[in-house]
Design a protein around this nucleic acid. Structure first.
Lengths: 197, 197
DNA sequence: CGGATAATCGGAGGCGCCTCCGTTTAAACT
DNA sequence: AGTTTAAACGGAGGCGCCTCCGATTATCCG
């Protein structure tokens, strides 16, 4: 059973041929843009065309629309998570936290009103941000910790609770003032978080 | 605003041309069979063909797949409801109740594993059987009342509770013994319901 | 019973989905 | 560099979705 692995395997996922990897990446990139602009129901053939590959190639890499959606979604989520460390480097801890929450909300906003594919994904795969060691949870936790260590914010805040408060935005009714509201919510949360002085 | 209704309107829905009505009915009939056999994702063009009408006709009557599914679903539900009075006429009250529950379970069984269309329908439109004066609730209630009046079963049972107990079958894991299990559940419920003597 | 007319039909057409398989090409080996 | 081979490509093809509009026909009215 222990078949000899090909030698020098830096990463299992690197076992793609160079052209295959290029195509895959291009597809994800194009798909991200297309989904953002036209929603997840947009034509996959269009995406393939824009990426300069055949439709067959798209389907080989992503056997179903949902697969592609998930990859795009996950990629954006990873971007959001890594933005945390970036922001922490450039801003004061509380500002970093606030800005990051803003982005989080912005991210969720683009996912609102998306059709089945995503709704299913977000509930079935919610581990990605609400559970255990999820990426998003981790990012938020580290921002909170830093800010607390510096004395900018209270120490008695559960990451999970804050995350829930933010997630509630997802179920806010669609409306023109949506953005405004969500920013107010963040302001409110920040006020509550900051240490009195 | 008060436009003159055309005279002699027995029922608003009878305002269809004769051929239109025939086609509509045939479509529903064929669709019911097709959905039962191949699931709700079956080809609508096939359904139209089997009903002997053009695809255009199908779409005129049912603007989307979901519409058609809903009509079929509702029709079956109505059949189930009316079966209650029928059974009550032919059997002793407790037997009628038991047999009806069996059918209810059988009905739900065919809806298991059906795709989105229906899942959405059942949650969004759950009024059809779990709420207020729903058809199904009504049917069950009348069966219960008759049986209780005749002294076959206890009197202190809430229709809603029994309905919930039955509905729980919907979330039972898929398995070969499914039918067996559900029948055992019904037996159990009936035993609990019957008056001791 | 025609004739008028508005409701209804039906299928062609354009598009997207997804599969299948002959062709191309990166990469491993000599 | 040349050969081999398995990975990857890509688009034709078959099917289903849904729309649109000219042809059909039930129904109304004189």
């Amino acid at each position: 059973m222990a078949s000899a692995e090909p030698k020098t395997t830096p990463l299992a996922s690197t076992r793609l041929r160079a052209d295959a990897r290029r195509n895959r990446e291009k597809l994800v990139e194009v798909a991200a843009a297309a989904f953002a602009e036209k929603g997840v129901e947009t034509s996959l053939e269009d995406i393939a065309r824009q990426a300069g590959v055949g439709i067959g190639t798209l389907y080989r890499h992503f056997p179903s629309r949902e697969h592609l959606v998930e990859v795009v979604y996950r990629r954006e989520l990873e971007g959001l998570a890594s933005a945390a460390t970036e922001l922490a480097r450039q801003h004061s801890p509380d500002m970093a936290l606030e800005e990051w929450m803003r982005r989080f909300v912005g991210y969720i906003a683009t996912k609102r009103g998306m059709a089945n594919s995503l709704r299913i994904l977000m509930t079935s795969n919610s581990s990605l941000f609400s559970e255990g060691s999820g990426l998003i949870r981790g990012a938020l936790e580290s921002l909170l910790k830093t800010a607390a260590d510096e004395g900018c914010i209270r120490r008695d805040i559960e990451t999970t609770d804050l995350l829930h408060a933010l997630s509630s935005i997802y179920s806010m009714p669609e409306s023109p003032e949506w953005r405004e509201r969500s920013h107010r919510l963040i302001g409110l949360l920040m006020d509550g978080l900051r240490t009195r002085r």
